[in-house]
Design a protein around this nucleic acid. Sequence first.
DNA 1: GTGTTTTCCTAAAGTCTTTAGGCAAGTGCG
DNA 2: CGCACTTGCCTAAAGACTTTAGGAAAACAC
Lengths: 189, 189
Amino acid sequence: MVRAGLTTERLVRAGAELADEVGFDQVTVSALARRFDVKVASLYSHLKNSQDLKTGIALLALEELADRAADALAGRAGKDALSAFADVYRDYAREHPGRYEAARFRLDPTAAAASAGGRHAQMTRAILRGYDLTEPDETHAVRLLGSVFHGYVSLETAGGFSHSAPDSQESWNRILDALDALLRNWPTP
Amino acid sequence: MVRAGLTTERLVRAGAELADEVGFDQVTVSALARRFDVKVASLYSHLKNSQDLKTGIALLALEELADRAADALAGRAGKDALSAFADVYRDYAREHPGRYEAARFRLDPTAAAASAGGRHAQMTRAILRGYDLTEPDETHAVRLLGSVFHGYVSLETAGGFSHSAPDSQESWNRILDALDALLRNWPTP
DNA sequence: GTGTTTTCCTAAAGTCTTTAGGCAAGTGCG
DNA sequence: CGCACTTGCCTAAAGACTTTAGGAAAACAC
């Protein structure tokens, strides 16, 4: 019989597509096998288990997101960099909801260390270099930005801001304005 | 044989406890049946299905959270109200991680309408009455606060801020200071 | 006390995960 | 080229969860 040409790489990539189509939590080894028209057990030569597949998708998503962010940041600073960076997250979540969910998947410490998580933190710090913050305020600000971006995107994706005025896009713009103002004027107690 | 005295109410309540112990996504009709020492099929007289159970837990969590927030807000205004409100979310998530996850569960529109979601939005608006914001800025600010609180709590719960200085509690305090300053000084383009 | 309703049960089918062991398709070496 | 070897996909099977159908006994109503 003709072989399907499975590899871990291809499986993870297809898993990511599947996630975008049906949701990350609906990604299943069985569904993936169906997609390749192959028996379920065959996938276990390439994947340790179901968790392994999900971890793979999460790592892929974090990588892609970091790549896009790095691109967006090139040649920008200040508010410009802040907006571009934030938009990368929001756009990615809208284009690839399943992958975005995956990026929020709780990784075990080993996987987390090997992930692009560090790049994300570094880039956030790079943006803050356009503002006059010193430690520990810079770290507080990193955490604030992470919270706002993740929080907004996840509420928006969950449908929180649809069906009500004003438009979500407008809130997003004004929130970025507000964050810029805040960072330029970070309060000292 | 002696009856177990199951009711939807008791099942949902036990489901919430289970969620706090093993995580919301590990809450299963089977596990719940074991907890009541009863056969699985018996639960289906009280629950439409597994989704129904999860929705019930989500509604319970939203209710509890709204009750706590209402208590915390009583007699407070301004920064004081802001901090108290924010702490309710954070503390609840730390005390009841499973329930908090449940509160983030995507409800179908019918359940969402019947949920305490509206109370949460109303209370956020009440806090903002202590600041000088007019529409549509008030709505933008509601969305910002929701994003920060949800985002911070969910990153913190996922372990994002542990094992690194400064202490998460300190970031939380400084972020609340920053939000207070921002709301007192909301930028107009 | 009889009749009705409610509560829990047994049984069964469908899905997903994961492991064990097998045959055949590709690969490498003489 | 032909052979052994490795790898890739298969069949088989067991265990867990979900959900439905239909039955028996407990609780209740009069």
